[in-house]
Amino acid sequence: HEITLHINGRRVKLRFRDEKAAEILKEAAKKGLDEEELKKLAEELWR
């Protein structure tokens, strides 16, 4: 699955395995994680 989040006016595509991962990524984006941090988090969730 993929999700596209808008971060600092940019579109960031993240891959994720399940809905739980999608929710975690959305929450992290709301908390203000930047693009690099979100990509790292997405990679961690993928494993």
Rank of each mutant, 00 (worst) to 15 (best):
E23W: 09
I7A: 05
E35W: 11
L41F: 06
G9M: 02
I7Q: 02
L45N: 01
I24G: 03
G9I: 01
A28G: 08
H6A: 08
K20G: 11
K40S: 12
K13L: 08
A22N: 04
F16W: 05
E23I: 12
A21C: 07
D18N: 12
R10H: 10
E43K: 07
N8R: 08
E37W: 07
K20Y: 11
K13G: 03
L45C: 02
A29M: 08
L38T: 02
D18E: 08
K20V: 10
R15T: 04
K30I: 12
E35I: 15
R15F: 08
A42H: 02
L45R: 01
L38G: 00
L5A: 02
I3E: 02
N8V: 03
N8F: 04
K26S: 08
E36D: 13
I3M: 15
A28I: 04
T4E: 14
G9C: 06
I24Q: 09
F16P: 02
D18G: 11
L14Y: 04
E27G: 08
K40C: 06
W46A: 02
G9Q: 03
L5Q: 01
E44H: 11
E2C: 13
K30D: 11
H1M: 13
K31R: 14
E43L: 09
A29F: 13
R15P: 04
K40V: 09
E23S: 12
W46R: 02
E27A: 13
D18K: 02
K26R: 13
V12S: 01
E43T: 07
E43F: 08
I24F: 08
E36C: 09
E23R: 10
V12R: 01
A29G: 06
E43R: 08
D34S: 15
K26I: 13
E27N: 11
H1V: 09
K20H: 10
H1N: 14
K13P: 04
A42P: 00
K40T: 12
L38K: 00
E37P: 05
E44G: 06
E2F: 15
E23Y: 08
D34V: 09
K40Q: 14
A28W: 10
A28L: 06
A42D: 01
E23T: 13
R17W: 10
L38W: 03
L38M: 12
E19N: 12
A28H: 07
L41K: 03
N8D: 08
A21P: 02
L5W: 01
I7D: 01
E43Y: 09
R47W: 13
K31Y: 14
K39W: 12
G9V: 01
R17Y: 08
H1W: 14
E27Y: 07
K20L: 10
K30A: 14
H1K: 11
R47G: 10
A29L: 09
K30R: 14
R47L: 14
L45F: 04
L5T: 01
R15E: 02
A21K: 02
K30V: 11
A22E: 08
L33P: 02
E2P: 02
L45I: 05
L45A: 02
W46I: 03
D18F: 06
R47M: 13
I24K: 09
L38R: 00
I24D: 04
E19I: 09
E2H: 13
A22Q: 08
R11W: 15
K31L: 12
K39V: 14
W46T: 02
N8K: 09
L38D: 00
E19M: 12
F16G: 04
R47Q: 12
K40A: 14
A22W: 09
T4A: 05
A28K: 05
D34L: 10
R17C: 05
K20C: 07
F16L: 06
E2Q: 07
K20P: 08
E44W: 15
H6Q: 11
D18I: 04
E19P: 13
I3K: 01
A28D: 01
A42Y: 04
K30W: 07
K39G: 07
D18Q: 04
H6W: 13
K20T: 09
L14W: 01
A29C: 09
K13Q: 10
D34W: 06
E23G: 11
L45K: 01
K30F: 12
I24P: 01
I3N: 01
L45S: 03
D34K: 10
L25T: 01
A21M: 07
D34C: 09
A42K: 01
L33Q: 08
D34Y: 06
E44D: 12
R15D: 01
W46K: 01
E43P: 00
K26Y: 12
R47E: 11
L33G: 08
L38C: 04
I24N: 04
A42M: 05
L25W: 06
A21I: 03
K31D: 10
L25C: 03
E19R: 12
L41C: 04
K26D: 04
V12Y: 03
E43I: 08
A22S: 07
R10L: 08
R17A: 07
T4Y: 10
V12L: 12
E27T: 09
E2M: 11
L14N: 00
K39T: 13
L45M: 09
R47S: 11
G9F: 00
